[in-house]
Design a binder for these strands. Structure first.
Lengths: 335, 335
DNA sequence: CTGTTAGCGCCTTCAG
DNA sequence: CTGAAGGCGCTAACAG
């Protein structure tokens, strides 16, 4: 495989001149440039970015570490990040943690070894230790979707508390008084924040802790199904459900259906995250929709600014609003 | 940032010894190893893989170049590729071409410069030139989903011809005689193969070219919508539609609905690619489902074998079967 | 406008 | 079991 030296020799110039041509840097006479370009063509020379990166300490590569690209919410974020990165001349390494701390740690290790210029991370646990390692290596880090309390870190997320509040407020407004929440894992900020929104809405309606009915599970369909089953089995049955994400919503719906009940007649259902409208004939769920594309975009722009050293010194915390989309699953007025 | 040399100095050994500890290579006394590991810990040393890759000519990085991660079919493939790569200690750079040759070329260029160990490519155009560049650099390449006629290249794809045949055969069996096909772009092998399957089924039923009604468009929803509109406007209306992928199917469905007609009563509809069952309450479309996860897995395993120099010399061509899933959109017997 | 020197951080080769 | 020398391919700094 040809190197700058081979090209230089063939063109009768020095290696550095070849480098200048490749990178459009410094002054080069048209004639020399022509000779070099011709040599490059003849040799089929492809510059070795590894060597360049080693020298410049910049790889033009970002890492996107998320839980599971298969969730359409993350799919959109990934697409958005790749778009923004690509526009700026960066590539993106994709990593799925499946909410496993062990996987996350493995990935982060390798990514730092590969000297990615920045990491976009959806942290599995919202603890200081998660990010300590990355920060200690002075690699720019932007936390997406979740936040880590008590640590100075750039983060881009949605207003989970507000979205949760709005959905539950909607249910209350329709007359529901027994509203159960099917949450994600405790300790994951997006789950916790949505619970907080749920609580605030109940409190505001004069309902106290006795009226709270919260199940904690995972952000997947099976967990949603199981939590819904428990809800149906337990004590006095709620009349409405608030599910903490799209998969939990689907699982809950199926459990209700499998129990021979109907949404929304027998059980109103609202949830976080819209499903991709393009793939669904007849959208049914009332949701708090997150601007996934915008999130990815802003996170990427922020980290690219950090990489370029152009971002303000203080840590940025960007919180985007959710949009409440009312459809049939929330039903009409209750009673 | 610490280097092997720093670690070596602190541990009172030579750099190469540190290297041996890091890579578990060669013989090291327990005691020396202990000292080195302690030094690594103290310094927070993170090995620089760039330098290592430069030396070893291996990056442990693959590239996945596809059209659009947002299509659930590709989402699944991406997940699968990342899973298999990760298991083998490789990372994956994700690239979306949006079916643009220019984008594709840009990506391939940068990827080769970054010295990825292999490229998994969904080629925008099925021409020899597309892959020539990569092959000329001796970088392992596996073509996914499509194939490039007349070139020796590893490829993993589905039996598009067979799937198309089966779907159209199904329609014919239900009595349909006027069946239109809404295809993807001519020159993209998956589209062409599906058209071939359509033709074979018609021919076998004794219908000649006069009975063919084929529209060529793009693999997206808007194109599906537009092709369907044309179909509805043009001459004698068909009674059944074969759409070449999931997005075209959705677009066609919406056009039919917007025209005040019903699927399947007024128009039967079958298509390629199942939609993610997990996200859909009540699957409706009769489809030829492709084993996306399996495709990604096999493609990745093949390319990893090539990288390791363990694959058979001759080029591999893996063709996976589709599964016909009959649902309501294909209707009952016609007439 | 062009070239020389040196080094980014690592590992292979060959000695000890 | 450990080390010294050299080079992977590139570019910054400094000359000219």
């Amino acid at each position: 495989m040809a190197t700058v030296r081979d090209v230089a020799k063939l063109a009768g110039v020095s290696p550095i001149t070849v480098s200048r041509v490749i990178n459009n840097a410094g002054y080069i006479s048209q004639e020399t440039r022509g000779r070099v370009e011709e040599a490059i063509r003849q040799l089929g020379y492809v510059p070795n970015t590894l060597a360049r990166s080693l020298r410049l300490r910049q790889t033009n590569t970002l890492a996107l570490v998320l839980t599971d690209i298969t969730n359409p919410f993350w799919t959109t974020v990934a697409r958005s990040v790749e778009d923004a990165a690509s526009d700026a001349g960066f590539n993106v390494i994709l990593c799925n943690t499946d909410e496993s701390e062990i996987e996350q740690e493995k990935y982060l290790n390798v990514l730092l070894q590969k000297r990615v210029d920045g990491v976009l991370l959806v942290p599995v646990r919202c603890t200081r230790e998660t990010v300590q390692f990355i920060q200690s290596q002075n690699v720019p880090l932007v936390v997406i979707d979740r936040h880590i309390p008590g640590v100075e870190i750039d983060s881009v997320r949605c207003d989970s508390e507000g979205g949760g509040y709005a959905l539950v407020h909607l249910m209350l407004g329709q007359g529901h008084r027994r509203i159960a929440m099917l949450s994600g894992p405790q300790g994951v900020s997006s789950a916790d924040d949505r619970v907080a929104g749920y609580r605030r809405a109940l409190a505001e309606a004069g309902l106290d802790h006795q009226n709270e009915l919260i199940f904690y599970g995972e952000f997947n369909q099976q967990s949603g199904y199981e939590m819904m089953q428990k809800t149906l089995d337990a004590g006095p049955r709620p009349t409405a459900i608030f599910a903490a994400n799209n998969f939990i919503t689907m699982g809950a719906f199926k459990a209700v259906r499998d129990a021979g009940l109907k949404v929304p007649e027998d059980m109103a259902l609202v949830g976080f995250d819209d499903l991709p409208v393009d793939l669904i004939i007849d959208p049914f769920f009332t949701v708090a929709s997150q601007p996934a594309y915008e999130m990815g975009k802003q996170a990427t722009e922020l980290i690219l600014a950090r990489v370029a050293g152009q971002a303000p010194a203080e840590c940025q915390e960007i919180i985007l609003p959710t949009e409440i989309i009312v459809r049939r699953s929330s039903g009409e007025k209750y009673r």
